[in-house]
């Protein structure tokens, strides 16, 4: 015989709710003060002429229309798309290849895994400074190697055709984080599937295409989304490289060689903190939000075609 649950009396239910709210209150206050309020204010500021020191002056959509007529806005979008479209797949590909290598049963594997992961624990500023030396056009390690091979030695830091590829190379060096997630995903693919495929006569490539890739596709999907978002916010490495290529230590508002390193986040920063155009910078942040939301939505729309969750 089924037992009836005793009804919770109104007073007790209210006290449970109050306790719940009380426990969640620190987060709620933090969210309202430090997330929601700035987000709402940034919408307002994007509609104003605001330099952070004087009262904002409402200008309607002027900041947005000015941006759409600003050549440097499009230049920054192009540079950012370049890093996103080329940098994201490149990082995923190299990360996956390294994970595949480090998933082999070889003696001393923990050592190799540590070795390959190590660059990603180096702070971004430190690794950027290191790479500025490696990429030094006259004395750098990379160009000296290219010289020994008899190849062209680009001016990585100041030739607008090579500054972004230099950053891509720097990015590949730091794919340890991506690699480690892929490694975990690879180890999660059921062994039984490989054994069954081997019995059916499948080769290495077929097993990779039909078992490994579908098996780790949710992780590829996750890394793709994160990679795209990170590349849309590309900032620190470019900021440091510009500082170096303009002579070092001189306070110059620059987007690097012919603005080839003027990434969206950097241009936003310059507008906000160099030129004190917080209204324009807020408008840029919202445009970026819409672009990222749209790109994320499109990537999500495609997932039915290539992401396999196994239990669906």
């Amino acid at each position: 015989m089924a037992q009836k649950k005793p009804p919770v009396r109104g007073k007790k239910r209210n006290s449970h709710t109050a306790a719940g709210i009380l426990f969640a209150l620190p987060w709620i206050i933090g969210f309202l003060a430090f997330s929601l309020y700035p987000i709402v204010m940034s919408v307002y500021y994007s509609l104003t002429d605001f330099n952070m020191f004087q009262a904002p002056k409402f200008v309607g959509l002027e900041n947005y229309t000015a941006l759409f007529q600003d050549e440097k806005f499009y230049k920054s979008l192009w540079n950012t798309m370049y890093m996103t479209v080329l940098g994201t797949p490149l990082s995923l590909l190299v990360g996956l290849l390294m994970a595949l290598l480090l998933n082999q049963k070889v003696r001393g594997m923990p050592f190799f895994r540590t070795l390959f992961y190590l660059p990603s624990v180096v702070p971004l500023v430190a690794s950027s400074m290191l790479w500025l030396w490696i990429l030094n056009p006259q004395y750098g390690l990379l160009n000296q190697m290219l010289q020994k091979l008899g190849l062209y030695q680009p001016n990585w830091l100041t030739d607008p055709d090579f500054t972004k590829p230099a950053l891509l190379i720097m990015g590949v060096w730091g794919v340890g984080g991506i690699m480690i997630i892929f490694l975990a995903a690879l180890q999660d693919v059921p062994r039984s599937l490989y054994e069954a495929a081997e019995i059916d006569g499948a080769g290495t490539l077929k097993k990779f295409v039909h078992i490994t890739l579908p098996g780790i596709s949710p992780v590829i999907f996750f890394q793709l989304i994160m990679g795209v978002i990170n590349n849309f916010q590309y900032f620190t490495q470019a900021y440091l490289m510009i500082g170096s290529s303009t002579g070092g230590g001189l306070n110059v508002v620059s987007g690097g060689a012919e603005n080839s390193l003027l990434f969206y986040a950097l241009y936003l920063y310059q507008n906000a903190f160099n030129l004190f155009k917080m209204g324009k910078a807020s408008a840029m942040a919202w445009i970026l939000f819409l672009i990222v939301a749209l790109v994320t939505f499109v990537i999500f729309k495609t997932q039915d075609r290539w992401v396999s969750y196994g239990d669906d």
């Binding site: 997330s35 700035p38 987000i39 940034s42 989304i225 994160m226 978002i229 849309f232 916010q233 900032f235 620190t236 986040a265 950097l266 936003l268 920063y269 906000a272 903190f273 942040a285 919202w286 970026l288 939000f289 990222v292 939301a293 994320t296 939505f297």
Partner: peptide
């Protein structure tokens, strides 16, 4: 995640 971009960009900048 996309929403976090706004905060992320402003924070990273």
């Amino acid at each position: 995640l996309a929403g976090a971009t706004i905060c992320g960009v402003l924070a990273s900048c």
